[in-house]
Each structure stands twice: as C-alpha cells, then as structure tokens.
Amino acid sequence: MQSATHDQQAPVGTAALQLEDAAVSRGGRSIWRGVTLRVEPGEYVAVLGPNGVGKSTLLQAILGLLPLTSGSLEIFGRPPHQAASLIGYLPQRRSFDSSLRLRARDLVRLGLDGNRWGVPLPFAPGGREIAKRIDEVLEVVGAAAYAERPVGELSGGEQQRILIARALVRRPRMLLMDEPLESLDLGNQQAISALARDICRTEGVTVIMVAHDVNPILGDLDRVIYMAGGSAVIGRPEEVITSEKLSALYNAHIEVLRTSDGRLFVVGQQPEAISYHAHD
C-alpha cells in the first residue's frame, strides 16, 4: 500500500519503523520475541491483540523507555534515543480529569517546550511563532473553538483532541497513540480515528495506534500489527484478521466472524493475559 506523502529527509526506502528479530522482557519474563516488521512512512497502523500481550510495551520500546533484550529497532533509520524528537506520544489515559483548571491552549503549549527549565517570559522573542504554531495544530485537530476553555470542562472527545494537538505540536514524523479510543462513545471513536487518518494523509505523519477493538477504525486503517502468543504479524486487515492467521498466532482454535455490515468479531480461546515464557 503506497502512502500519500514522501519522506524527504531520509534516503528513499527508509522505513518509519523497522524491527528485526526484536525481543523485550520485563522483570526477567519475556513479553515478546522474534518480532520482525516494517512500517512505511505515512501509514496508519493499528496494534491489536488481547490484554497483557505487550502492545503498550511495543510503544515504550519505540520511545526508548524500555530497552530491547535482543534484535534491533529503528525509527526513520535511527535508534530510539536519537529518534525521540521525531515522535509524538499520546499515553493511555485512565480517566477523564474533570478538575484540571488549565487552559487547553496552555496544555498544548507544554508539548512544545514543557521540558525546558524556567518560566516562559511574557515578551520573549519567538512568542508570536509559538502562538501561530499552536493555532495551526488546533485547526488540524478541530479544537480551535474550545482552546481557551479549561481542560477539565471539556468532554472526553474534546480532551482527546487537545491531547492529540499536544502530541503534534512539535511536528513529529510519527504519532504513537496508546488506546486513545477507550472511554469514548462510538461516535467519538470514529471521529478520532478519522482525525488520525486525516493527520496521516495531510500532515504526512505515520500513525501507530494501540486499540482494543478494531471495528471503529477498520475502515481507516492501512495495515494492522496483530500481537499474540509472544510474537506479532503485520499486514492488511483482511490478510491478518483471519481465522487461519490468528489460530496460528494464538496456537489455539480461533474464528473470525464477519457481520453483514462488515464488522469483525474474533471468537475462540482467547486467554486474556497470555504470557509467553521464554526458555533460554
């Protein structure tokens, strides 16, 4: 599947994300191993799989927050620590923070320079460019109308858009989203997924989204990374989410059912927190 934009800063053919026989452990227990996959620049990819299989762990490895125990991982040709500035990150949000009396716009600003010491001076040079950039990114996510309101007063979908804006404000080439659709209603889920697809196409950002349920986003996706049984496969949804592929991955009898309106349901022995025990 060809992406709409081209990466001009890396040599032609550099993958947005490339894992070679990668493995990761936590506390001595292997989470996944032997993962080899390649995400092209400008793709919209979902990471799916049961709970506890290591989807968030994949994001943390990409961010450089968790080292690989073997294999390699490169983002636009660079190792995780050098690629940090190329990545925007939307962590998993546990609940809706209704008491945060911080202007939405100021929250977005933190994504730009929140890690610099000191306080921003009111008349410092560059202020106008910063304000312009924030306005731009708010337009992209469709949140310009409520940027002046406190975050705590926004709805779940609105808060999520502000958080996406924060992740995008430094013009990353890759956007990592960890379960952004959780605790949103179906309408909002579809809207956020459509937003992710638009960001992908118009801004040329590679979007990797960890999701629980593939159905709200199925129509927008380019490819799917399915993690199970201590490993992962990547491919187009119709290639990966099949009874055969998943049964092989889980090493159990899995069936994928398709409803009349195109929704997919994965049924079978789906042990939730399947942990793969490495014997080495």
Partner: peptide, 23 residues
C-alpha cells in the same frame, strides 16, 4: 520553584507524556 516550574507543571498534568519527553 521558578526554575522547575515548567517541567513540574507538565509532570503534574500528564506524567507519562512528560516522561516520554525526557522529564
């Protein structure tokens, strides 16, 4: 307090995102 104000603000509002940005 003034020196750590900005990163502390970020860390207080979204610890995971702040950590990913190096704080």
């Amino acid at each position: 307090l003034l020196v750590i104000a900005r990163p502390l603000l970020y860390a207080s509002v979204d610890a995971a995102a702040a950590a990913a940005q190096g704080i």
